[in-house]
């Protein structure tokens, strides 16, 4: 069992948890993920590691309530335990040797982009961070992000924070204003990552994306997380989750994410009837 040492709601749909897992905390690097299972009847879900504290022996995860498992996870409190917590899985993001990076996060993706920005910053690179949200009420990690980058640009779809637009709008403007990035990292919903990659392809800037497909074991066994990269089949769990964004087949990846939409909805509806929470995000 893995103890929940801290729980903090970041906004109406996102929650941060720090889990006691000293061995994982010691090993985890930016870009890697864990798989957790709440109880014996639960699903195994992958979540990217948001932060680690080697001294406290904790691993931080940030999740959005999108389905039954994340709703149930959100019901747990500090002092409760999670049945299974395994990691660090996947390959760390390759961050060596870059001088100037734009790190882009979309919504919950900011939680995953943050450790990469932090690592780059600690390695001495210039880091501009662009964070996109639907509206100002769901902005997360503002202080954390601004602490690990040279410039933080927060933009909202509806303009409610005073900056209307998509992350690609900000990136395009920065590039056109003469910023010379040798690396772009884009993490967030698939359509966002795809849009960023389409833009950076024009300017020929290397772009890393973090893929988050459906998976079971996270060790290469199930093959459920296969995605097409450069025309070849790759397993996100062992070959990724980071890939060269210019090579990823996003359309296929988006299709594969929709695999269990119907079953997930049934599971959520069932859970709602049992009073386990619910909502329109289900």
């Amino acid at each position: 069992m893995y103890l929940i040492k801290e729980k903090r709601r970041l906004n109406s749909s996102m929650t941060l948890m720090s889990i006691q897992a000293p061995l994982i905390a010691k090993k985890a690097k930016a870009g890697q993920f864990i798989i957790l299972r709440i109880n014996d009847f639960g699903e195994r879900i992958p979540l990217t590691i948001a932060d680690c504290d080697i001294d406290k022996g904790t691993v931080t995860i940030i999740f959005q309530k999108v389905g039954k498992t994340t709703y149930e996870l959100d019901q747990l409190e500090q002092g409760d335990s999670i049945q299974d917590f395994v990691g660090p899985l996947g390959l760390p993001t390759e961050l060596e040797g870059y001088k100037k990076a734009a790190v882009i996060g979309g919504g919950a993706g900011c939680a995953i982009a943050y450790p990469s920005a932090k690592a780059l910053h600690n390695m001495g690179a210039h880091v501009d961070m662009i964070a996109g949200f639907r509206n100002k009420d769901i902005i997360i990690l503002e202080d954390e992000m601004s602490a690990v980058c040279d410039n933080l640009y927060i933009t909202t779809d509806d303009g409610s924070n005073g900056n209307k637009g998509f992350v690609t709008d900000v990136l395009k403007k920065l590039i056109e204003n003469g910023e010379q990035y040798d690396l772009v990292i884009a993490i967030g919903p698939m359509p966002m990552m795809k849009a960023v990659c389409n833009l950076t392809k024009e300017y020929n800037i290397k772009t890393i994306v973090s893929m988050n497909p459906i998976m079971i074991d996270g060790t290469g066994m199930c093959g459920g997380c296969r995605i097409k990269v450069g025309g070849e089949m790759k397993f996100a769990c062992v070959d990724g989750p980071d890939f060269d964004g210019h090579e990823v087949d996003f359309d296929e990846a988006m299709e594969r994410l929709a695999m269990y939409k119907k079953e997930e909805k049934q599971s959520m509806d069932h859970a709602c009837k049992l009073g386990l929470g619910g909502g329109k995000n289900a």
Binding site: I216, G220, M221, C222, R226, M233, F235
Partner: peptide, 26 residues
């Protein structure tokens, strides 16, 4: 031997195509 082989034919990424490992594990 944990890594499932695929046939490398067209359509293996379609929804409803499983490795036996995934199908049986589920």
């Amino acid at each position: 031997a944990g890594l499932p082989n695929f046939m490398k034919i067209e359509g293996e990424s379609l929804l409803g195509v499983y490795s036996a490992n995934e199908f049986l594990t589920r």
